[in-house]
Computed example of a mutant assay.
Amino acid sequence: MGQGGILIRRNNPARSMLAGLTMIIVVMVAGWLFYGRPDAPSGGSTETPVQAPTAVTGEASDVANNDIAADSPYLLDHLPFKEEEVLAITAGGNGKNARIPAERQFVLLESLRYTDMKSALAGPMPAASRKPIVLQFKLADTHYELTYDLTSNAFEYQGKYYYADDRVLLLMQGLFREREELASLDALLEQARVEQEKETSVDPDAAPAAPLDGEAAQVDGLDFDGWEQRLAESPPEEIVWAKPFYDDGTGQVKEARLFKDGVLELNRMIVFTRPDHQCAAGVKTGISTDDVTKKLGTKALKLESRWSYKVGDYFRFHVYFMDGKVKYLALSQPL
Rank of each mutant, 00 (worst) to 15 (best):
L87Q: 11
R113A: 10
E110Y: 03
Y114L: 08
E59F: 07
Q105G: 15
Q51K: 14
G93W: 01
R104K: 07
D116S: 14
N94L: 11
E47F: 10
E59M: 12
K82R: 12
P73G: 13
A64E: 07
Y114Q: 06
A88P: 00
A69P: 02
S61M: 05
V63E: 03
P124H: 12
E84M: 08
D67P: 02
A70L: 14
I68S: 10
A122I: 08
E83P: 02
K96G: 15
V107D: 11
R130P: 09
N66V: 01
L75N: 02
E110D: 13
A70T: 00
D67C: 00
P132R: 05
L112M: 13
K82N: 12
A69R: 02
D77S: 07
N97D: 09
I100G: 03
V134W: 01
I68L: 07
T115V: 09
D71H: 00
L121T: 03
L75M: 06
E83R: 08
L109K: 01
N97W: 08
Q136W: 04
F81H: 04
P80C: 10
R99N: 09
A102I: 11
T48F: 13
S72K: 10
V56G: 12
E83H: 04
P124T: 15
G95D: 06
R130Q: 15
A91I: 06
S72P: 10
A52W: 10
P53C: 11
F106W: 05
T48V: 15
I133D: 10
E84K: 14
I68D: 05
P124A: 15
I100W: 02
E47G: 11
A102Y: 01
S72R: 00
T90D: 12
R104H: 14
D116V: 03
D62Y: 00
G93A: 13
G58H: 08
R99Y: 02
K118V: 10
A88H: 05
A98Q: 15
G95L: 05
T54Y: 03
I89H: 00
M125N: 06
F81S: 04
V107P: 03
K131T: 12
D116R: 08
R113L: 09
P53M: 06
R113I: 02
L87C: 08
P80L: 03
A127Y: 00
G92S: 15
A60H: 13
T90I: 05
L76A: 08
R130A: 15
L108T: 08
P53W: 02
G123I: 09
L79G: 06
T90H: 05
Y74M: 13
I89V: 12
S61F: 00
Q105Y: 00
L87P: 03
G92K: 07
G123M: 09
M125C: 12
S72Q: 12
N66I: 03
A91Q: 12
A102H: 09
H78K: 04
A102C: 01
D77W: 00
A88D: 05
K96V: 14
A120I: 13
E47S: 09
T57L: 06
F106L: 13
S129K: 11
Y74W: 15
M125A: 07
P126N: 07
A122E: 06
T115G: 06
G123Q: 11
G58V: 04
G123C: 09
I68T: 04
K82G: 12
E59T: 14
E47K: 14
K118N: 07
A128Q: 11
A64K: 04
S45M: 15
K131D: 14
D62R: 09
L121D: 04
